[in-house]
């Protein structure tokens, strides 16, 4: 697998629709995209389907990609992923009532992790899903995917100041939800 510094060279080859280059980009970024989508939909099967969809859209749109560095290519992919998730919820229209059965849970912290840790992580994930869409995007991209405010601002089409504010409100809402002081009906706009 090539290092991520070779991303731009791969993108250039991908623009010529070289199957190998596109497959390598898929290999490089599959986990990032899958992880983001997983935390947005909390369902393994749907996350796999949506991730698949993102990479097929990448093939469709690769020639319009203007990425000049590896991080901006990743941001471009996250934008596609974000749009796919939005479409997914639009189609399902059941965003507020996601079931969280066994199939939906990730293998958190490994089988040897204490039960308390697993429960805390599950609670936290459920709480994240109760945030507004934009708060979810900001929180997952910043703390789970490790993107900078500037990158998140680019993906969401907002200013960095707006992203800082979103994070603040997102964390505050999350805290209220975890403390049992907030529920789905108390989402901030």
């Amino acid at each position: 697998m090539p290092p991520k510094s070779d991303t731009l060279a791969l993108v250039e080859r991908a623009k010529r629709y070289e199957p190998q280059a596109l497959a390598e980009l898929c290999q490089l970024y599959y986990r990032d995209i899958y992880s983001y989508i997983y935390y947005r939909v909390s369902n393994v099967q749907d996350a796999e389907d949506l991730t698949d969809d993102v990479f097929l859209k990448m093939v469709e749109a690769i020639r319009s990609c203007r990425a000049r560095e590896e991080r901006s290519f990743l941001a471009w992919l996250f934008r596609i992923a974000n749009n796919s998730v939005v479409d997914y919820y639009r189609r399902r229209a059941v965003r507020n009532h996601l079931p969280l059965d066994e199939k939906h849970l990730p293998v958190y912290a490994g089988p040897e992790a204490p039960v308390e840790t697993k429960l805390t992580q599950e609670r936290l994930q459920q709480a994240i899903l109760k945030l507004t869409e934009e708060q979810q995007q900001a929180i997952i991209l910043r703390f789970i995917e490790g993107l900078s405010n500037a990158e998140i601002a680019h993906i969401l089409g907002k200013s960095e100041g707006a992203i800082k504010s979103l994070q603040h409100r997102g964390l505050a809402s999350l805290r209220r939800i975890l403390e049992g002081r907030g529920d789905l009906n108390e989402r901030e706009p």
Partner: peptide, 26 residues
């Protein structure tokens, strides 16, 4: 705590299936 959440491991079969579809689309 959020930062400490584990990143889910994707299923290698799903990755391979996606790569195959990407190659086909290309």
């Amino acid at each position: 705590e959020i930062k400490a959440l584990p990143r889910p491991e994707p299923n290698p079969r799903a990755l391979r299936a996606t790569q195959a579809r990407v190659r086909e689309a290309a």
